[in-house]
Design a protein around this nucleic acid. Structure first.
Lengths: 148, 148
DNA sequence: ATAGATGCAAACGGTTTGCAGTGTT
DNA sequence: AACACTGCAAACCGTTTGCATCTAT
């Protein structure tokens, strides 16, 4: 768990960057930035709204949605769309990774594998394409656990 | 392009299997089975409905949705959920493959890579999990084409 | 001062569902 | 004959949007 000072710092760095990009840093956006920086899981819009409200932010759900789109466009956050569930979000500052979803608990884990990344690029190249982005998700169950 | 006799045959094989599984083969389901067998692309529910109607089937959209769910449960078709677009469907009889989506044309291509499959299984195993299913999608652009 | 952001409530779009009637087994 | 299936229309749910009002720059 990262300490408050660190996240606070992270959030204000981002504010500077946003202002530089000509994006206004409103009370609502600043609050969401902090909620996201403090989140180590993968919350959806409704959950982020709840957390912002819990922090006394006063933000409408519509603004949460608009802000998420804005932050994504600015490259500050990434959107995750797992099997039919509402979209989830994560801070984009981390190194690239893929996701593994435990079907029984809903837990989302992260992993990376350079060889898979390389193979993907090779496959696309062989067919004459460049990869713009990709999505690799493993839907799993604990080894030896009884099927649903 | 596969000939009609082949697809017709495929479809009636499936009907037998469904009946054996205790699923009633109604006029609507038979029609959809044929439309799906004849589709070499990755149509969504609305498109399948259109094709069924064009074939003179007389099926409601609600039934198309219910039938797709039923056929998926029976393992006859697979559901594809690409970036935010409506779900698409494909016959499940083929060997496993992943998808590559051309961002400029919307074209969906299929590919397989055993090494990637093996690496995925290894990663899950290392973390103590079994893969139930996975999703690998490459969003690509023709090499050398101008960015959007 | 002014372009851009917000809140509200209404609309959206794909998908699901309750119910009364129909058709497959 | 029984019970699964269908059509219709209404509901659903996550997300987007029009508009009047506010606010960061």
């Amino acid at each position: 768990m990262l300490h408050d000072g660190f996240m606070e710092n992270r959030a204000s760095q981002l504010e500077q960057a946003l202002r530089r990009a000509g994006v206004r840093v409103t009370r609502q956006r600043a609050a969401l930035l902090r909620v996201i920086a403090a989140s180590e899981d993968h919350p959806d819009a409704a959950e982020l709204h709840r957390r912002a409200e819990a922090a006394g932010a006063g933000v409408s759900l519509a603004t949460v949605y608009r802000t998420l789109t804005t932050l994504q466009t600015q490259g500050v956050i990434d959107k995750l769309e797992f099997q039919g569930e509402p979209a989830r979000w994560e801070a984009a500052d981390q190194r690239h990774h893929d996701h593994m979803i435990d079907l029984d608990t809903g837990e989302v884990m992260e992993f990376t594998n350079d060889r898979i990344e390389r193979l993907q690029a090779e496959i696309a190249a062989e067919m004459g394409y460049d990869i713009v982005h990709h999505r690799l998700e493993l839907y799993v169950r604990r080894r030896g656990s009884p099927g649903a």
